[in-house]
Every structure is written in structure tokens, then in C-alpha cells.
């Protein structure tokens, strides 16, 4: 449906904006455990950057760099990061997601961070693949 557009303005603006958007997304994700924000919001912002790319440069371009298969893997991987942290707590003898036992400094914060990252990855991948699927429809 969406093919490469002629508009140089859109392309340039997108190229300029995308890094900032992504940086902001990472900020939101990384700060999720100590301030407003978090994996979900960050993930959506991250996804928005890719969606902006596909609007500006066409779906095929984005797909070439970010294949469906990779998205599938990322979706699952994010969940595993989340669940893996939880299971790690289980294995360490506490309840699921009880980060207190994690062998790192400031375990509660770090555990939560791991989870936020997982959520961020999953949300990003899922949003992008929903967008792809909707656009890919012929």
C-alpha cells in the first residue's frame, strides 16, 4: 500500500527525528523503575520510530532491515527476558518475580529494569508487526 514517496521533506525530517525518538524511547524504558515511564511507554515510542520510518521510506525498506522473522524472535525474546527474571527468582528460592534475591546491587531496581527492558522489546516488536501486517494487506 505504502510505497516510496517522493517527498524529500518527509524523508529528511524522518531521518532527523528517528534517532531522537529512539533515544527518548530508551530513556523512558531505562527510567521506568524510578520515575514515570517504563517498558510499555518506551516500547511504543520505539515502535513509533520504526512506523515513522516505514511511512517515510516505504514498508519494503523497513522490512528489508527488520524482517518479520526478527520481529517474531524479538517478541518472544522480550517475554523471555521478563519471565526469565521471574523464573530466576523462582530458582533462587523465592516467589515468582520476587527480585529481592537477585545477586546484583540494588536488586529490586535492577530486577525491575530487566523486566522493563523485556516489556519494551516485546511491545516494540509487537506494535511494529501489527503495523506491518495491517499495511502488508493487499
Amino acid at each position: 500500500m505504502i510505497h516510496e514517496q517522493e517527498s524529500i521533506v518527509i524523508k529528511t525530517v524522518a531521518r532527523l527525528l528517528v534517532p531522537f525518538i529512539q533515544l527518548f524511547a530508551l530513556y523512558v524504558i531505562m527510567h521506568g523503575h524510578s520515575s514515570p515511564g517504563g517498558g510499555f511507554q518506551g516500547g511504543v515510542i520505539l515502535a513509533a520510530s520504526f512506523i515513522l520510518l516505514s511511512i517515510a521510506y516505504g514498508l519494503d525498506e523497513v522490512k528489508r532491515r527488520f524482517s518479520i522473522k526478527a520481529l517474531t524472535v524479538l517478541t518472544s525474546a522480550g517475554v523471555f527476558l521478563y519471565a526469565g527474571t521471574g523464573v530466576l527468582c523462582l530458582l533462587l528460592g523465592e516467589n515468582f518475580l520476587d527480585y529481592g534475591v537477585l545477586p546484583v546491587v540494588e536488586p529490586r531496581g535492577m530486577g525491575m529494569l530487566a523486566i522493563e527492558i523485556g516489556v519494551g522489546i516485546t511491545v516494540m516488536a509487537a506494535m511494529v508487526s501489527i503495523f506491518h501486517d495491517l499495511l502488508d494487506f493487499e
Binding site: 524472535v73 517478541t75 518472544s76 517475554v79 519471565a83 523464573v87 516467589n95
Partner: peptide
């Protein structure tokens, strides 16, 4: 830990499936 496992196992496996399915 059984109460969490009963939910966790199917959830994790359901996310492994697309990977394996490739």
C-alpha cells in the same frame, strides 16, 4: 511454587512455539 507454574508454563511455551515453528 505450583500456583505460578500452572500459569507460567503454558505462557512461556506459547512464546517458544513461534520460534520453534520457524
Amino acid at each position: 511454587q505450583l500456583p505460578i507454574l500452572v500459569v507460567l508454563i503454558p505462557m512461556l511455551v506459547s512464546f517458544v512455539i513461534p520460534l520453534v515453528g520457524i
